[in-house]
Design a protein around this nucleic acid. Structure first.
Lengths: 414, 414
DNA sequence: GGCTTTTTTTCGAGCCTCGAAAAAATACTG
DNA sequence: CAGTATTTTTTCGAGGCTCGAAAAAAAGCC
């Protein structure tokens, strides 16, 4: 179970810590790193000199803003963009997008492609994913350094080890082990991540002041998804990617959900549910796909005048509010980011949502709960995948040797 | 944020690891400890020889069962009961109980006392708690060694730092900082823990095969509480003890809950709710206290024949089932222990509970979810408090020096 | 140009863990 | 019953890592 700390773990962990500090802070000096990590100057000096020699870090000459204090000027440390690269693959409804990202986090190549995900056969879907990655990797215009990791993100449920897509709303196909497929094809370690979890990871990097230890990212789109960060760590289920907020029960035996069950939050707040309600269709009506443009038009009509459209958003807000209330009963309230096309209609959702929360255990702090909105989920997902992959490189490739007992893991990066 | 590992942390953590291995395994030999911790024999030898010299561990002569293999026999290591002691204080409805427990986990003294918790004034409640602890500590019949920790458990909500009771169903009083009060009074570090969390801790020690990484302990009593263990760690809210399962929303706008809101799970499954429903009282009826004996009589009547009593338990099962279903949507299914007087009536609850779960996202694995029952919560709570306190002593007193930067923390236990 | 200030590197000391070998304690064997 | 085999535990030297102090480096200040 709990494993003792060996002597060689020390350097390994502290190396990872230095890399993490540099990635987080941008161009910190050795002194700053010593301060944030609590390690001595000598240790930081030794570790960073190693990392520079190995080509992982670079000294970025005088930091522009400085030079006002006297004393020896600080030398900034930066990630060497050429130290490695990672690839992100994001698969969403009718859309496949790939990006190559350097070690410093800059996009150096990308490609996007429409794809009829709802009808495409299994082999073809897999083939398209492999092909688009291959094109980017073999692009002669670009000297893609050593790609150290592929991170794929998808809407739907993935397994808890980030290896396979188990189920997804964007395709009837199930159980595709994308991580294994990509690994086998390219010989590069890969992961298969849940979209909402990646959104949460991205938010943590984008705005660490607001999204640090505890927060929630909710995807308001065709379906309802959630990424949850607790105590600074991404929360995942024990078997699956977890956090199926959209399938918490709002009204037992209620409206028909896309998942086939009844009364889920999503059956009131997903795009198809809002549409169904606005069109005065039965709650038992089979869920249909609604385009983003149609949803925006619906929101406009709801803003215009009272009517079934506005009522549909109110009901969505109510479902989300009670769901959040139950969630807050379990984990205490936390900041929430609403992402996706319906987040652009959050003005229509918020009043009923707040009213519902106020009736729940989380209601005491109802006022203090704040919501951000971000209508476009794709950039967030890609960013999250990129950071996921890069921190993997930081920790497992450039600070290797974690708790491997048997086996012939390479000893040092020379 | 993330702090580097210093050289002195190494020994500290490995000491803690050895203590943890001994506490978990009973009387492991040095060789066994080396195997479970992954540390070398030399390291274990050095650490345990220190711990023995400091009087924390003892060598427990030949382990009886052995002596069949040849070779030098293993020498078991055991916790020295006299190395320290801890005190547990459990405050529940009309009942206050205290125990003194030695370092090896054996109860060496206890005292219990009836108390009218619902009406007792604040000062008197605090006074009674202090008095009962003092009596046990100053008992001349018993040579209580150095008490290193007091762990108090209470039904209700505590803050996330385990310092204060914020709210409790057993008294109208709120915000009593019991941990600070006991610390000031006795000069011994203290904590104020939530009862259901302690139940979960106890289960983890009692049956580590079943309750290891992910499980749920639910208290079915006057109120509904929950202790949640995820990835082997007790889950707590960000501000409070968290896990207010009983106040997840079952039916928006539904039955009146003791907390003043409507439609909570507890408003259908708490003792008072079952009683209310069985007596065909209104769902708006003010919650009343129901004695354990009355509840047992009610269950007997429900078993006897169809009628409002049986229906009341069915409705409780339904509420618990949908609540668990929502919870399972978030964290994936896990084993559940039902504790408390209504757990003895779980046969009446289970059918509707399983039926409800089957209708939720957790339903796919509905069959594989297993329930244990334990009608008596008090021993569990005390056991949990004791283990909590003892592991604190292991980690913070006998392996001191964690991440203290400034300050004059004692260096070594001599 | 010398002095002050701040950052970074160097160097020796002190720990800690590890592996190998030795020591200890028992069962087996003839 | 003495010698051998086996297993556990201790001992000892080697190698690494971090730390503090001091030195070196690189500026601004007077």
């Amino acid at each position: 179970m709990s494993v003792g700390i060996r002597h060689d773990d020390l350097r390994r962990r502290n190396r990872a810590m230095v890399l993490s500090a540099v990635r987080r802070a941008g161009q910190p000096s050795r002194t700053e790193i010593a301060a944030t990590t609590g390690l001595s100057h000598s240790t930081i000096s030794a570790i960073s000199s190693d990392l520079i020699q190995e080509g992982i870090l670079t000294e970025s000459k005088p930091s522009e803003t400085a030079s006002l204090k006297r004393g020896r000027p600080q030398v900034g440390l930066a990630l060497n963009p050429e130290a490695a690269a990672v690839v992100t693959v994001v698969l969403s409804l009718n859309f496949l997008s790939v990006a190559v990202i350097d070690y410093a986090g800059q996009v150096i190549a990308e490609e996007q492609r429409r794809l009829d995900t709802l009808t495409i056969p299994r082999d073809e879907l897999i083939g398209e994913c492999i092909a688009i990655v291959r094109r980017r990797l073999e692009d002669p215009d670009l000297d893609v350094g050593s790609v150290a990791r592929i991170a794929m993100g998808i809407q739907g449920i993935t397994d808890s080890h980030a290896r396979a897509m188990l189920w997804s709303p964007i395709t009837p196909l199930t159980d595709i082990p994308f991580a294994d497929i990509l690994e086998k094809e390219f010989g590069i370690p890969a992961t298969m991540e849940n979209d909402c979890n990646m959104m949460a990871v991205a938010l943590q990097w984008r705005d660490p002041d607001r999204y640090r230890d505890n927060f929630i990212a909710i995807l308001l789109s065709h379906g309802i998804g959630m990424g949850l960060v607790l105590k600074g760590e991404l929360f995942t289920g024990t078997h699956s990617s977890g956090g199926e907020f959209g399938h918490m029960i709002h009204r037992p035996g209620g409206a028909l959900c896309r998942c086939g069950r009844r009364g889920c939050v999503e059956a009131y707040a997903g795009n198809y549910a809002i549409w169904r309600s606005a069109m005065k269709m039965s709650e038992d009506a089979e869920p249909v796909d609604v385009g983003d443009a149609d949803m925006r038009a619906l929101a406009a009509k709801a803003r215009e005048k009272q009517g079934p459209e506005r009522e549909a958003y109110r009901r969505a807000g109510e479902a989300l509010g009670f769901g959040l209330g139950s969630l807050f009963a379990l984990i205490d309230p936390a900041p929430v980011a609403m992402v996706g096309v319906s987040a652009a209609a959050f003005d229509l959702i918020e009043p009923a949502l707040r009213e519902a929360i106020a009736q729940t255990a989380g209601g005491q702090h109802s006022k203090s709960i704040s919501f951000d909105t971000e209508p476009n989920e794709l950039p967030l997902i890609r960013e999250g995948c990129a950071m996921r992959a890069l921190t993997f490189v930081d920790q497992e490739i450039f600070a290797p040797g974690g708790q491997v007992r048997a086996g012939s893991a390479g000893k040092n990066v020379a």
